[in-house]
Design a protein around this nucleic acid. Structure first.
Lengths: 188, 188
DNA sequence: GAAAACCTTTGATATTTATCAAATAAACAG
DNA sequence: CTGTTTATTTGATAAATATCAAAGGTTTTC
């Protein structure tokens, strides 16, 4: 179970034995049933979560409506960057959409780790840089492509999401109403 | 001249004497007249730029049109994250809008630095995390606020930009046409 | 397996923003 | 200054998307 996790970290930046041992001793693993929360609104995000298996969505409330920010698939990481770094109550919630197994890495453990093996910071930097590039690409789409083109793009790059997820979640992620998304679907 | 730069880095993460000396020996400082490019399209971004003084815009071409991605004001950093990390030709251009003085930190020098003083990585992580939070907030605005609200928000948070910059640059940053922005202005 | 809850589609209309065309206004060069 | 370029505003119309209301579908639950 832990192996897949270590392997993924290792691929980013080869882990020293000491670091590997620290991770094994510090992480916790939880089974989280469908619909339960990995991170609840109002609590401080003190972990980096890794979905060993399952599927989750990250969302927040805006004017009483649920806005889906993104999804986390199997073998992906997620957490509230804002809450984690500012140590403030999270606006973001993370909820499983399937029964999931989640690996929790605590902030303190991560800090320990980056002392033991300083090049792990390079891993974090790489991940953040990738996220920023991704975020800028998405911004470009949102600003200059039609709702239809954005949906088609999502369909092409993340087909698994569209199958697993109710239309309303996708609509709010794309920044359109469910009615519009339904009509777009009808046209394809 | 260098002092202001070192001070800013120092505020993020106190610099050791050795790191400070390395920076002083490795950076280059250039005066760049209004309208000239700090980073040109097609060249690989191998530096992190710091505007000691002046003002610049970051933009790229999409379907033959200039799209402004963001601005860099005095005492701010800028570079093409994508080109820098992927080592690919930059789509992004950075052009001064006023006579500017720019401090160049080369990628190699940065690498050296982070070996000498590993907690500088924490600085980079903090900066990226902030950028990501900023980017997510902007996404929320772009997805769910009207063009008018977005303009008003920019006006409130970055009033200096609006004074210095032609309307067309702001319009493309907001993802609207100049005509629409002109009408929005008329209403306020 | 019927009722309830939830999800998706459809229709009519209103609002926002884009597009195309042209008129002003401002900045700039000689 | 004066013509020339560049930036901004205005108008008429078209396209995209939202909103409100309601009707069909699916799933879930007991």
């Amino acid at each position: 179970m832990i192996d897949a996790y270590l392997e993924i970290l290792d691929a980013f930046s080869p882990l020293q034995e000491e670091a590997r041992a620290l991770i094994e001793s510090q992480i916790t693993i939880k089974d989280i049933p469908k619909g339960d929360f990995i991170l609840q609104e109002g609590s401080v995000c003190n972990h980096i979560y890794f979905l060993h298996s399952g599927f989750a969505r990250q969302f927040y409330y805006k004017n009483g409506k649920e806005i889906t920010e993104w999804f986390a698939a199997s073998k992906e990481f997620c957490f509230s960057i804002e809450s984690y770094f500012h140590q403030t109550p999270s606006k973001l919630m993370i909820q499983t959409l399937e029964d999931s197994t989640v690996i929790f890495l605590h902030r303190d453990a991560y800090m320990e780790l980056s002392k033991i093996q300083s090049d792990l910071s390079q891993l974090a930097i790489k991940m953040f840089a990738e996220s920023l590039v991704f975020s800028q690409r998405r911004m470009e789409h949102v600003l200059f492509e039609s709702a239809k083109d954005r949906y088609v793009h999502l369909l092409e790059t993340k087909p698994n999401i569209i199958q697993k997820v109710p239309l309303a979640y996708i609509a709010s992620f794309l920044g359109i109403t469910q009615e519009t998304l339904s009509r777009i679907r009808g046209q394809l």
